[in-house]
Design a protein around this nucleic acid. Structure first.
Lengths: 156, 156
DNA sequence: GTCGGTGCAAATGCTTTGCATTGAT
DNA sequence: ATCAATGCAAAGCATTTGCACCGAC
């Protein structure tokens, strides 16, 4: 659980990203007087390697598959901490469970949701950031996040 | 509950919108072999007059305040029918309850969510439709909806 | 030794569903 | 008559929480 970069990442980009994410998380915890525990480290590490949308349930299952003992309660509690720290975001909700996504250090992305197949594809639309900033600036607000989703199906 | 337009709407635009919405709903129901009941009519009518985000709970309360007896179960069942018919959309979920919004016949709008105050403002951003269409066209897909949300707070 | 963390199980609360009754065609 | 809708109360189910025990500083 004390993953370290082993040099320039070649096929495993998540190694490059673990250090900064981990640092941000630790800092956020420390600022709140909370602790960076093995469970929290393992959960963050696993989320980074999932690298698509995930549900609390699936995350728990994956942690168990990897031989790590964590309780459901801790998974939920850690997800909330990671949200508060701005590392992940809740992104989808049309299904029964909440779906989360790693967002820190990533460009805000758009989810293209196939209403026929259920597939979800993340796409990058650079203009959106500019639109968001314009809207906020007009009102003297500071943007904290964006969520853009397009629902579509194959034209028959 | 058999609301009819009383002529060119002056201060109450919802009268203009009721007829087409009602027609779409009735058609959608008929296509499924379902019935257009007084409860469903009243619920649709009330949603139209709410004209901001609403929760199932608040909708039920409002129906009761207007002296109409409907059960929670029917409200939830009707909300689902209206979603299926494409008249309303579930839009927010970061809070405990689902929030819905009338979407039929309206431009897709963006929700500006104040993370400090909790206020939600709907804004019209015309470029988004073009972006959506472009993304879909590139992939040979047909757009069914869009959801764009910006989270922001007052810059201190 | 003091705090916070964890796991378990129980509780919460929105939403859904089973069932008997009612209503529309 | 038939087939669906309604209301009520009971279930479902993801998520949260209370509590006793454990561990880090």
């Amino acid at each position: 659980m004390d993953l370290k970069p082993t040099g320039p990442a070649t096929g495993e980009p998540e190694l490059e990203i673990f250090e900064p994410l981990c640092a941000v998380f630790r800092r956020a915890l420390k600022d709140e007087g909370l602790k960076y525990t093995p469970e929290r480290a393992q959960i963050l590490d696993t989320i980074i390697r999932i690298d698509t949308l995930f549900e609390a349930d699936a995350l728990l299952q994956r942690l168990k598959d990897e031989g790590f003992r964590v309780s459901k309660a801790t998974v939920y509690r850690t997800i909330k901490l990671l949200e508060d720290a701005g590392l992940i975001q809740r992104v989808l909700f049309d299904r029964e469970q909440s779906h989360y996504q790693l967002v820190f250090g990533k460009k805000p992305n758009t989810l293209l949701v196939r209403t026929d197949t259920g597939d979800v594809e993340a796409i990058d639309i650079p203009e959106l950031a500019a639109i968001r900033d314009r809207i906020c600036k007009e009102r003297g607000l500071e943007p904290h996040g964006t969520r853009f989703q397009i629902f579509a199906s194959a034209s028959e």
